[in-house]
Nucleic acid binder design. Structure first.
Lengths: 115, 115
DNA sequence: CAGATGTACAAGTCATATCTTGTACAACCT
DNA sequence: AGGTTGTACAAGATATGACTTGTACATCTG
């Protein structure tokens, strides 16, 4: 049995949609190494604090952020495992050498699928 | 100078947003190996032909699909290179062993960033 | 040429996302 | 206790997305 780590099972959808926003990717870059309080994250943006808070919420729900409460502050950091679905997706679509060769040949000699 | 292949430079955004939809991922699975006409792709879905056509449009704009016209039909296939931005994103966020260790230690002994 | 087929384009509907302003509230400070 | 700080929650405006139905159009076929 696979151990259920935390938060949701994180459908690939949630993760991909979360990553599809530049602001959110920027947030992830900020907390990639260090653990940062929400306010400090928000300070990096022109957006309002609330807007950033909402982005954090999306990332958290996608399992991409870990929250730790420290007094009145909330500290966030990247949860790397959450990227696994993306990794799987990539490997699903990254063709092995054989497929690439076949593709190359087909491209050179286009032969349409029969009618 | 890097050679400009085709279509747009494909911002990571377009690719990620295109991938964030299950229908579109399914389309990519279909054309991952074989080249398929739009109609045949559409036939795999409960959606209308037009809806699928729109999904194809999104994928094409993201650079994920190559189109080839063959008589009245249009044949599509996955353009693997378009996944490069995703690969880059992953490697950007995938921590090296040292970072992972640091993280593990921090998790074991939480020490907040100084006030 | 006329009809059938394969596909995209166009416009409209409805749901969802992103942002804003306003507010609540817990934790800290004196 | 009362003010200040850090942050989320709530509600609303507007934009964007994913569909639908209807239509246009090029290509093939008889």
């Amino acid at each position: 049995m696979a151990e259920r780590k935390q938060s949701t099972p994180a459908a690939p959808d949630a993760v991909l949609r979360a990553l599809a926003d530049p602001h959110r990717r920027q947030i992830l870059r900020l907390v990639k190494h260090s653990e940062l309080p929400a306010g400090q994250i928000a300070a990096s943006f022109t957006l309002t604090q609330q807007a950033v808070s909402q982005h954090i919420g999306v990332l958290k729900q996608a399992g991409l952020l870990t929250e730790r409460r420290e007094g009145t502050r909330r500290l966030y950091t990247l949860r790397h495992e959450a990227l696994d679905p993306v990794r799987e997706l990539l490997s699903e679509f990254w063709p092995d050498a054989l497929s690439r060769l076949k593709k190359a040949v087909e491209t050179a000699h286009p032969r349409p699928p029969k009618r």
